[in-house]
Every structure is written in structure tokens, then in C-alpha cells.
């Protein structure tokens, strides 16, 4: 049996007395889209921040297996999780480098690779030919993702001037430029119109199928979740209440209860013991 790409075991995150995530365990596999859903305040973003190293989990183990090498994410710093374990993420409220151009955003994403190629700046300062080659390759990778995200025409524009949908796509392109094995997307469809979210579905399927990259997705837009996910995890009040393929989750009474509230008769039955 192959090791899952990301194995989350007994993840618990407490902020003082508040338990934001309580004993959550799940797996995310490579070449699969795993969606994490749940009502507001269910702890989805906290799970993400633990995986990406922005929070240190109170309890739990996060194992990312990259080419057979396990990385224990809870022990790594945020930039090592991105650089060494190759986990990329996007943010709920877009975080681009707004005054830099679209192309520069994608080149910054390839920082570690280029830093080594430039001999940690020393060789690059004197025009080392190996660096120019590495830079040209970086631009090629950037161009590839610009074409995929339909941003080639605006490559030299300042990132902050892009329309909202463009900024969302650029953030995904930038994350992909780090050549990740796991891509974590925090509400990528928020604020997109139906056509843009259909394009997003196509892009995410392409990333999953062509790049064998695992995608972990937080999303409120059920049309996105149900159409493209291979696997859905439902959180409510920090606990996992369902885990399975989208169709099974959709009909799970616990999930329906979490989203729509419990039917009145069952509430009466429970209350009137």
C-alpha cells in the first residue's frame, strides 16, 4: 500500500481555552483533489495554517511524503515547508506582491532555485553564465503557467492592477511556480463569477492530472467542491464529522444537520428524554 501524500493524525489546535481544531485525522493523496468543507468557524483555515507552518499544532503529527522521504511538517518552519517539503499555498485574502509585475511575482516564487544558481548572489553579481541560463529557465516556467492561467498578455503589468479574478489565478500560478507536491488553496473560488469558477475547475483538474500534484482545497462554493473533488472532509466545530467521496458526503445526515440545522422532530426527540 502506498503512503498517502499528506497524513494528518490527531491534529489539535488550541488558542488558550478555545479548541479550534479537535483531534482531526485525514489523508490527502497525490493526483487527487481533497476538499475540506464546513460551516463558518469550523476550523478549516486553522487546519491549513497548521499544514503550511503558520501555526504550530498543539497536538498531532503531519507527515508529508515526498518521493518516499517523509517530512514532519509540525517540526518545520514555514519557509522550509514551502521550500523543502514543497507545500505551496494560496490565501483567502489574496497576498500578491502588488507593486511588482506579474512576471516578477512568478520569478520570486522560484527564489530558492535561482538563489543556488546565482551562487548565493556572488556569482550572479559578476554575470555568471550559469545564472543567465537558470534565469531563462525560470522565465520559461513562468511563461508556461502564464499561458495556463491566461495571463500572458498582462505579464508586464503591475500585479496590483489586475482584476480580482486575474489576481486569484496569478496566486495559483505563483504557487505552482514553486513546483509543489501539494497545493493548498484557501477558498480559491471566493468572489469569482460562474464563468471564472468554471475556468478554475478546469485549471485545478489540469494541475491534478498533468502535474500529479495533490490539491487540498477549502471551499464554500459547492458547485466547485462537488464537481471536482475526489474526496471531501467535513469539519464542524473543529471536529471531523464526515470523510468520503462527494456523493456520500452530500447525503450524510450529519453534514446536512451541520449546514441546515437538525430537523425539528429529531431535536424534539433528543430534547424530550
Amino acid at each position: 500500500m502506498t503512503q498517502p501524500l499528506l497524513k494528518v493524525e490527531h491534529l489539535t489546535m488550541r488558542f488558550g481555552g478555545l479548541v479550534a481544531v479537535n483531534d482531526v485525522s485525514f489523508d490527502a493523496k497525490a493526483s487527487q483533489i481533497t476538499a475540506v468543507i464546513g460551516p463558518n468557524g469550523a476550523g478549516k483555515t486553522t487546519v491549513f495554517n497548521c499544514i503550511a507552518g503558520f501555526y504550530k499544532p498543539t497536538v498531532g503529527r503531519l507527515t508529508l511524503t515526498n518521493n518516499g522521504t517523509p517530512h514532519l511538517l509540525e517540526r518545520m518552519s514555514g519557509n522550509d515547508i514551502a521550500g523543502k517539503a514543497r507545500v505551496a499555498r494560496t490565501f483567502q485574502n489574496i497576498r500578491l506582491f502588488p507593486k511588482m509585475t506579474v512576471l516578477e511575482n512568478l520569478i520570486v516564487a522560484q527564489h530558492n532555485k535561482l538563489m543556488r544558481a546565482s551562487g548565493f548572489t556572488l556569482l550572479g553579481l559578476f554575470g555568471w553564465p550559469g545564472y543567465s541560463k537558470a534565469e531563462a529557465e525560470a522565465v520559461d516556467l513562468a511563461r508556461y503557467w502564464l499561458e495556463r492561467t491566461n495571463l500572458t498578455d498582462v505579464a508586464d503589468e503591475v500585479a496590483g492592477s489586475l482584476p480580482y479574478g486575474g489576481q486569484r489565478r496569478l496566486e495559483i500560478a505563483r504557487a505552482m511556480c514553486t513546483e509543489p507536491v501539494l497545493l493548498c488553496l484557501d477558498e480559491p473560488a471566493a468572489g469569482l463569477n460562474p464563468r471564472e469558477s468554471a475556468d478554475l475547475n478546469t485549471l485545478l483538474r489540469f494541475i491534478r492530472d498533468e502535474h500529479k500534484c495533490g490539491v487540498l482545497l477549502i471551499e464554500h462554493d459547492m458547485s466547485v467542491v462537488m464537481q471536482i473533488s475526489d474526496h471531501v472532509i467535513v469539519l464542524d466545530y473543529g471536529r471531523k464529522i464526515a470523510d468520503g467521496p462527494p456523493d456520500a458526503v452530500r447525503n450524510d445526515p450529519k453534514v446536512i444537520a451541520a449546514y441546515l440545522g437538525e430537523p425539528e422532530d429529531s431535536a424534539v426527540a433528543q430534547g424530550g428524554v
Binding site: F54, N79, G83, E104
Partner: peptide, 16 residues
């Protein structure tokens, strides 16, 4: 320059 714009995004891209 990226650090000036957004430090958190830099960390998420593996920049120390």
C-alpha cells in the same frame, strides 16, 4: 522587494 510587499507570502514561497 517581495519582502517589502508581503512577508507572509514570501514565507509561503519558501523564502527565508
Amino acid at each position: 522587494e517581495a519582502l517589502r510587499e508581503d512577508e507572509i507570502a514570501c514565507t509561503a514561497l519558501g523564502i527565508n
